[in-house]
Amino acid sequence: MIPFSILDLAPVTEDSDASEAFRNTLDLARLGERLGYRRYWLAEHHNMPGIASAATAVLIGHVAGGTSTIRVGAGGIMLPNHAPLQVAEAFGTLASLYPGRIDLGLGRAPGTDQATARALRRYFDGAESFPHDVLELLGYFEPAQPGQPVRAVPGAGIDVPVWLLGSSLFSAKLSAQFGLPFAFASHFAPDAMDEALALYRRDFTPSARLPQPYAMLGINVVAADSDTEARRLFTTQQQAFINLRRGRPGLIPPPIDNIEAYWTPPEKLMMERALACAVVGDATSVQEGLTAFMARHCPDELLITTNVFEHAARRRSFELAAGLMVAG
């Protein structure tokens, strides 16, 4: 059975705050560690009331400090928001504190709206400089050379696995060119998944960091004790998705009984296309769905995200999904 990992957005629900979200994040990471999940990734988003993982490196340190063996990382750091040197220093620090447990996934989108992107980095040039920035960042993790004018301290000579994240052929091509592991955002933008995977595997160039291609796919999983309950829990993510597309992001809403009354037909079609990589149901349904997904796409690893309202229900979902790892 391939490894399963967890993607967390540190959700802030309508009845909670960031402090509770962080407690829930650490609790879920500890559960994931006990259940055998390989890694626990947190995603950088800004100006989103329902997502508390904006200071991603800080939260990674919190999770790594509260766990023992599970890998902890960024899925990802949005590199256009940061100077590569600062990212290398932050993750060099994390890797020095928690050796052998820190991952760095990089994305080329700002992870927010344009006004917030300008507030994050006033000289933001867009994603066009992403390949150059990735190479610069990778260089800071190489052993420092005599006379090198700028080095990452800590960071130089420290082993930090670097992934490229994306939802397009651009990211797949760059991952292959640089010989890096690739994580595809199929959990919210699956349209180019098959083509991107094929391109990445076909064009992969072995590197000192990675001898052969390694691809991880994101997938939404909502598992519950019945199909009916799982579908109801999933309405939280469906509402949040529609709210975002309406330009009204907010706190994570509770589930509702009639999702059909919530959206318009065009919104429903858009949501179904964006969240097509979703497995929702009881333990049997989820295991069948995940098995079929893996058989069709042959990922090297699955990155599971579960965005439901109640923390107990989220824990239960990951427990049921982990049963497939045990069964395998």
Rank of each mutant, 00 (worst) to 15 (best):
N47L: 11
R71E: 10
H45S: 09
A43I: 03
R34M: 05
E33T: 08
E33P: 10
T56H: 08
L31A: 09
R71M: 11
R34A: 13
A64M: 09
R71C: 06
T69N: 06
R34Q: 12
L42W: 03
H45Q: 10
I51V: 09
L35E: 08
A52Q: 00
R30S: 07
L35I: 14
Y40M: 01
A64N: 11
G65E: 13
T69M: 02
I51A: 01
A52H: 00
H62N: 15
V63W: 03
A64S: 13
G73D: 08
A52E: 05
V63I: 14
A43K: 00
V72S: 12
A57D: 15
A29V: 03
T67Y: 03
A57S: 15
S53I: 01
R38L: 11
S53V: 02
R30M: 12
N47A: 15
N47G: 07
T67Q: 08
A55F: 11
H62F: 15
S53Q: 02
N47P: 04
S53K: 01
R30F: 02
G61P: 13
V72E: 03
A74L: 12
G66P: 06
V72R: 03
A64Q: 08
L42S: 01
I60Q: 07
Y40I: 05
T69F: 01
G32D: 02
A29S: 13
A29G: 12
H46G: 11
T67W: 06
H62G: 12
A54I: 06
A54M: 13
V58I: 15
A64P: 06
W41K: 00
G36V: 04
L59S: 04
G61D: 15
G32R: 02
G61W: 12
A57P: 12
L42M: 13
R30E: 04
I60S: 07
Y40V: 05
